[in-house]
Simulated assay, not measured.
Amino acid sequence: MSVFIHPLSDVKTKKIGKNTRVWQFSVILEQATIGENCNICAHTLIENDVVVGNNVTIKSGVFLWDGIYIEDDVFIGPNATFTNDKKPKSKHYPDQFLSTLIEKGASIGANATILPNLKIGQYSLVGAGAVVTKDIPPFSIVAGNPAKVIGQVQRD
């Protein structure tokens, strides 16, 4: 299977891996890199300085701003929110946006908020609605506002 890009999406990048699907009303800017076998659902935005690994699912309502890096096998739930500026002001932009790394196999629940300049550890699980204000250790389950470790992920 080749790349599927819905005709109602606006995809400028050429760096999209095979078997990836991009659904309607999605915008992907020119310098973004998208891996193989990804599913990018409707109503998403991916800026230029974004890398999405292989086998990643990005559900509807997710915006990936410059500086967001996602490794392989990651799930991002609907309306999860990422930020890349700790002190945003209208018409005042930093020289470089802060970056966030989502490591291999992590899952982020619906409506979670991820503050900038953090690392979400491999195979960790961020609960729905959690507000992540600090790094999440690998294999951790976090929930709440601010997100706190409430358990450990067991690998299958």
Rank of each mutant, 00 (worst) to 15 (best):
E36Q: 07
I16T: 10
F63L: 01
G61S: 03
T100Q: 09
V62K: 01
D72T: 06
N84S: 04
I70K: 11
T57E: 03
E71Y: 11
A42V: 01
V56K: 11
V27A: 13
P88N: 03
V52K: 01
C41S: 11
K14S: 06
T13P: 11
P94D: 13
F97I: 08
I16D: 04
K87P: 01
K15E: 15
S90P: 09
K59S: 12
F63T: 04
K86R: 15
N79T: 02
F75A: 08
L45N: 01
N79P: 02
A42F: 07
I28K: 05
E71C: 07
H43D: 04
I68T: 11
N84Y: 01
I46K: 06
I76K: 02
D66M: 05
V50G: 04
Y93M: 15
F63R: 00
V51R: 08
D72F: 13
L98T: 03
I40K: 14
W23V: 10
F97S: 06
P78G: 07
Q31A: 05
T83Q: 06
D73Y: 14
G77Q: 06
D95W: 09
T20H: 07
P88H: 03
E30V: 02
K59M: 08
Y69H: 14
L101F: 11
K86Q: 10
D49V: 14
N55E: 14
K15H: 12
N37H: 10
Q96C: 12
K91P: 02
V62S: 00
C41A: 09
I34C: 09
D95M: 13
V51Q: 07
K86V: 10
W65M: 06
N37G: 10
L64V: 00
C41F: 14
C41I: 03
V52S: 05
I46H: 12
L45M: 04
T33F: 09
V62G: 00
T81P: 05
N54T: 04
I34D: 11
S99C: 15
F25I: 10
D85M: 12
E30T: 03
F82L: 04
T83G: 09
F63M: 05
E36Y: 03
A42E: 09
F25V: 13
L29M: 04
V74E: 07
R21S: 15
L101P: 02
P78D: 12
